[in-house]
């Protein structure tokens, strides 16, 4: 099913930008990070695709590969199928184009990712921390994040029972 979507997408964007994988449970399409916004617009408004529902946006940190992978879960009411898009950005200076203008729902997901993983989304209307306080240092969902033992002079952990 997703392979059909893939063929439509390849017709428009060419094979260089997109790769199709089905080694996981949900087959996914690997996208070039520069083209993510155009691709999303195409997927949302193309009459053959109509992926109008934005389910979720997740970021996964891979320190060994030195990259952060963004996973977009889209849903089309017309085809009653889910489509997974993946795109990777470098870990050092993660920057990606925002898709807030395509789905408003993505706005808060991107803010959350900025907050917890430190991915900077360009052209976002309000790129600020969402869940954590403004004075928080670091991005907790990164694999190399170390929890500080004190936050504002408060201990953050309790010992194991002695």
């Amino acid at each position: 099913m997703i392979s059909k979507v893939y063929t439509i997408l390849v017709d428009r964007f060419g094979e260089d930008a997109l790769l199709y994988f089905d080694d996981t449970l949900n087959p996914y399409i690997q996208v070039n990070p520069e083209q993510i916004q155009m691709l999303c617009i195409f997927m949302r408004y193309n009459p053959a695709l109509k992926f109008s529902f934005f389910f979720s946006l997740c970021g996964v940190d891979y320190p060994e590969k030195n990259q952060i992978t963004m996973v977009y879960h889209l849903f089309s009411m017309k085809q009653k199928k889910m489509c997974v898009l993946k795109t990777s950005v470098s870990r050092k200076n993660p920057e990606l184009e925002s898709i807030e203008s395509v789905w408003k729902a993505a706005g808060w997901f991107e803010r959350e990712l900025y907050d917890l993983l430190g991915v900077n989304f360009t052209n976002h209307s309000n790129m600020k921390r969402l869940l954590l306080p403004d004075d928080w240092v670091g991005h907790p969902l990164r694999k190399d994040y170390e929890e500080p033992s004190f936050y504002h002079d408060m201990e953050t952990s309790r010992n194991r029972i002695s």
Binding site: T24, L25, N26, F55, S56, H73, M82
Partner: peptide, 10 residues
């Protein structure tokens, strides 16, 4: 233990 994989359940 689960081998390398990923899925979205809803």
């Amino acid at each position: 233990k689960i081998k390398e994989n990923e899925c979205y359940a809803c």
